[in-house]
Design a binder for these strands. Structure first.
Lengths: 121, 121, 121, 121
DNA sequence: GTGGTCTAGACCACT
DNA sequence: GTGGTCTAGACCACG
């Protein structure tokens, strides 16, 4: 199994998400060259067009930029990366609250549980 | 696809998980009858055998019990349900910490972010 | 029919029982490789899925463990095997007492008969 | 399921065994009338010829006798019944020892285990 | 109608 | 080659 895509989200979005996390977590740093579409296409076992679409999204978000014949690079706009990181983190937290709610954990209890867990770790 | 299964986990486990959450969140209450294997088979668009396997897992966990020709029911052992709920919550929290770590959020910041988010909501 | 199944018990349970006895009696030792699902399927003249179900039971009982692409093996937890052996022996003894009772042999006479028989052997 | 026959023994022998136990345990007493072949045929869901064969075996063993137009009856020879009971018991005990041996319980331990179990009951 | 068992046969991932 | 998953479809017992 090369990657593990979910059925309920377009693949290009899943790839985008994966690369986004690599950028905001610093796996790919400012001005790092992003692997070529061909390479990514191989890695994700996806059609180059799908990769292209994912990268376009990232470019629209201002996380990467293109140098014509040179390739694509992570933006040097660290502020932008940080902003994206915050948004992502925020989304995950919302998701987390929603899941907990679905299970029936009261919102005020969530923080308590987390603090407790943090001590354990 | 009515339900949306992930590729990287057996369907029967995903169904199991879905029903488990319905039980620990109280959507299905103690002694509630669980829809028949055939109904669930229709609902999840899965083979009856797959449903059976999912329900067997839940029975092994002590969350449901079977009345042979009558149907399957949520256990009346509320303690067991609670135990399962706690374990599930714990798993989700661990997952949450791991994801955050992957993105590059320090553990001690996580709680702060959550508290902040909680105020917003 | 090579094996001889009883009508009143699911085949998978009978297979489970047969293999269980091989384990607790030491025919299969700790860490021994169990014949492959396909081999057993041939030997017991049963469907591979039926074998699988039998082996899953044994795995649930902690008597065997699986190495994904390698095969299934007898647990190295000798304590677990011993525990299972004791339970099995206990069951057989209870059964024995029940049968004797059904025939009309008083419980206190059973032991006497056994002791006597033992001398003969 | 009316009775539950094993595949590895002729049905007539299994029926014979069942009736034999009823006789030696006293469910059917000396001189009791045995149900008619037709009745037994219905009860065991077996062909009347099969029943006949089973009853013939019992007659050969001296456990039942036939009154021409009247039916079949349990022998009044209590000694014979007792002898048969002893043989049956003996067989079961041998079987029991064999099973234990198969599991790997030493013969001398069997009696100890039984005595212990008897105290429990 | 309910759940349970079983088979046949296919496909997958891993090595 | 290994085990694991899944489907389709049949049959059974119980009520």
């Amino acid at each position: 199994m090369s990657f593990n895509f979910t059925n309920d989200t377009p693949i290009y979005l899943q790839i985008m998400e994966d690369i986004k996390i690599k950028i905001i977590s610093g796996v790919y740093n400012s001005n790092d060259k992003i692997p070529s579409v061909r390479e990514l296409s191989f890695k994700y076992e996806a059609n180059p067009n799908t990769i292209q679409k994912a990268l376009n999204e990232l470019e629209d978000m201002g996380l990467i930029y293109t140098e014509r014949t040179n390739g694509k690079f992570v933006t040097d706009n660290n502020e932008q990366i940080l902003k994206c990181k915050n948004e992502t983190v925020n989304d995950i937290i919302c998701d987390f609250y929603l899941t907990m709610e679905k299970i029936g954990v009261k919102r005020k209890d969530v923080v308590a549980l987390l603090v407790e867990k943090e001590k354990e770790l």
